[in-house]
């Protein structure tokens, strides 16, 4: 069976140890976590996780059932194949000497990013993008020399 990425949206009780139960489930059963992002919802005692996981259809079915079985999990939604918006935030510190700066600014502009910090030899770019756009901008910036990068992992919402 073919493996693919799945996007799960998981509502959990916002309590100590809950994230550890979820992550422990994945490590204990040998499932993959490609990315994970967590924060509180409008209800302070409920958190929402967006997780990208990889596997074949049988594994993903098990993952969803196992997640639902955890006592602190409220609901698991599989967004894969549905109509949803997904975004990821990245901060990218890119090597920027005077000769390359204009080119970087052009790229950032095309991708609707922002320069949030400027140094003698670098720019720090803030970019919010879908997975495909993120890959595209990283490919364009790579030749300039990416010094550091931090990404949130995707967050996703039903349309």
């Amino acid at each position: 069976m073919t493996e693919q990425n799945y996007v799960l949206s998981i509502f959990v009780e916002n309590r100590p140890g809950v994230l550890s139960r979820i992550v422990g489930l994945f490590s204990g059963r040998g499932y993959n976590i490609e990315s994970l992002s967590v924060a509180e919802t409008m209800e302070p005692d409920v958190s929402r996780l967006t997780m990208v996981t990889k596997g074949d259809a049988v594994i993903i079915e098990q993952i969803k059932k196992q997640l639902n079985k955890l006592i602190n999990v409220i609901k698991v939604y599989d967004l894969t194949g549905t109509n949803y918006i997904q975004k990821e935030l990245a901060l990218i510190k890119v090597h920027a000497k005077s000769e390359g700066r204009a080119e970087i600014l052009r790229i950032v502009d095309i991708f609707k990013g922002k320069i949030v910090d400027v140094g003698q030899e670098h720019y720090t770019i803030e970019i919010t993008a879908s997975k495909d756009k993120m890959t595209a901008i990283l490919n364009l910036l790579k030749p300039m020399g990416i010094k550091e990068i931090v990404r949130t992992g995707i967050i996703a919402l039903h349309r």
Binding site: P16, G17, S20, G24, L25, G28, I71
Partner: peptide
């Protein structure tokens, strides 16, 4: 012990 028994209990509490 809550950390240790997380994967081998149905649920646990501190």
């Amino acid at each position: 012990i809550v950390g240790i028994t997380r994967p081998c209990t149905k649920h646990n509490y501190l």
